[in-house]
Nucleic acid binder design. Structure first.
Lengths: 334, 334
DNA sequence: CCGCGAAATTGAAACGTTTCACTGCCGCGG
DNA sequence: CCGCGGCAGTGAAACGTTTCAATTTCGCGG
């Protein structure tokens, strides 16, 4: 193995000089710096991560807690992960993968044994049992999602409340008076996952304000569930003319099923979704949607961590304003 | 921070004794061992991962290369990852996340800087450009998937060739004489991803043997693509009575579309899929399928790595025999 | 030509483990 | 009673960095 010593000898300088060239924490003359860099290249030197971590108490690793068992919104999760890994690498950080299922103990272990410098937790629920433990960690922590007691924690997420309101505004502006919501899986509401509840709040509250009648129906991620859900929402007496879909798993089948039941989109019924842009655009009929800005949220989360690692401490909840893209699946009520 | 020194003092033994209690590499008397363990517990000691790595040149981390951009078979990928992480943890290993997109350089960096002890690569393609570099790594490497030149590499995968043959056997046994294959995305075939090609080989070869006519149609992961694909495969002159789906992305819509076109499953057309069991079971009509044993493949891959880390070196290609579950979506030709 | 301050470079002490070589100690056979 | 083998436990030297404090070098004004 090539060590910093070899590099130093090869470049004719001391070990510490090489270290300073690498870290840039001291001014090094142009000439020396070049010589050292060349030696590093020629010898193919890579600093030993463990030794580095030991001496500097910085691992340059961040722990990422991912929900893996979720059969629901996998594409969204992957977008988050992808953006997080990319952004982390841009800051010269690697990502250690932990699963949500293994709980807060694993996070504690990883931090206590100095395997990572900071923690990023995805899919945080309203009453998330991990939150108290996370709060105690002596390292920066950023949550994607917002728990009930968010004070003193850094959180990043789409503003689901505003999103709920926004979709209603959109439909109300088009003249719709009765709208249905195809919600997430009942399980999601039961365990109080924040985003579903918050979306629903914004949705309901805005509808009340605008005098729009609402029909809410959670929907399990299966075809029969969707079928029943649509059957219920489209009962003639409800006179639903606008449909909001907050459920990636069944999104693909919604338009198909509507079509099969003889409802054209958007002529007979307007459809608007809350999902990643790519997904909305890939539907049989491209769907008007509010984007889930996974890329952006992931990047912001990592940037926040980096700032935390540099000593900043103004923890806060950052909610991103919803952006609505009209793809023609909504139209004025006839 | 609590160090091994603190533990030693607290337990009234030497530092090395504590280390040996932890590693079990030397016999330690029952009494001492208990005393040390108690001190560890009471002080909440966690060995410093970096120091450990430095002294032992073992990180207890394995690098996992995951394809993140793939919009295709995400649930399958997640199953792999989940199983890998779980198995790794059972061996006291953590998992470092690398993305396929960042290429072999990142893998090299991670190994060269001793951030991980071994590498697990998912989604290996037939002519994978990363393979030569992976071969040079001075650490155990296991691939999930099989490249063209697999000699000297450890590979684990479902036997896709046998799977292709198996589905044809199944349909042929039921009397079907003309079967269609809804394949993976054209992109998958183009980049020569091994599994798609191998499945196709087994499929074609067995059909020839059994005198079954085949109609192969790759299918992009979008509704219009599926629609066109079905239109093509179901042309009356083809007389297709059996349909094989090797495409998780459109699987959900296949049965819906068939139904819409007035074909009942399995009365008018038999459908058999290659996908995870859970997915086949969750369809509008539960589908007869060959399982993609992600759990098992992931676990075997990790176990193989662990053996490699213990010095074993009988590298080989392990192909798992396909298992077919009949869920009633296939029937005798009428 | 000398001395001074700033800039560049260096030596050596951490950092927290593992592991090798060694020391005590105990019991047993001669 | 002595010596010997084996078991438990210990001391100290790695492991490859970072970083503090100290030293050397350099340019410049006096």
């Amino acid at each position: 193995m090539i060590t910093i010593k070899d590099v130093a000898r090869h470049a004719g300088v001391s070990v510490s000089t090489v270290s300073y060239v690498l870290s840039g924490k001291r001014p090094i003359s142009r000439a020396t710096s070049h010589r050292v860099r060349r030696s590093i290249r020629e010898l193919g030197f890579h600093p030993h991560a463990g030794a580095r971590a030991l001496a500097s108490s910085r691992t340059h690793v961040l722990a990422l807690v991912v929900p893996l068992r979720t059969d629901l919104n996998l594409p969204v999760i992957m977008q988050f992960v992808s953006s997080i890994v990319t952004t982390a690498r841009a800051h010269d950080y690697d990502v250690l993968l932990l699963t949500k299922e293994s709980g807060a103990d694993e996070v504690h272990r990883v931090i206590a044994s100095s395997r990572a410098d900071a923690v990023l937790v995805m899919d945080v629920e309203a009453r998330d049992p991990r939150v108290p433990a996370l709060r105690e960690l002596p390292v920066p922590v950023v949550l994607i999602g917002v728990p009930a007691e968010a004070d003193g924690l850094d959180c990043v997420d789409l503003d689901f409340t505003a999103s709920g309101a926004r979709v209603v505004e959109h439909l109300a502006d088009l003249g719709h008076r009765s709208v249905g919501l195809i919600g997430s899986s009942p399980a999601v509401y039961e365990r109080g996952t924040g985003y579903a509840t918050r979306f629903l709040e914004g949705f309901t509250e805005c509808a009340r304000r605008r005098g729009v009648t609402t029909h809410v129906h959670p929907c399990a991620p299966s075809f029969p569930a969707l079928s029943e859900c649509l059957y219920d929402l489209l009962r003639p007496d409800r006179a639903v003319t606008g449909l909001v879909v907050h459920n990636e798993a069944v999104l693909g089948d919604v338009v198909l099923e509507l079509r099969r039941r003889g409802r054209r989109v958007p002529d007979d019924v307007s459809v608007i979704a809350l999902c990643p842009d790519a997904m909305a655009a890939a539907q049989p009929v491209p769907l008007t949607s509010i984007s889930i800005p996974a890329e952006e949220v992931g990047a912001i989360a990592v940037e926040t961590l980096m700032r935390g690692l540099q000593g900043e401490h103004p923890s806060q909840v950052r909610l991103l304003a919803p952006a609505l893209t009209d793809r023609g699946s909504t139209a004025a009520r006839r």
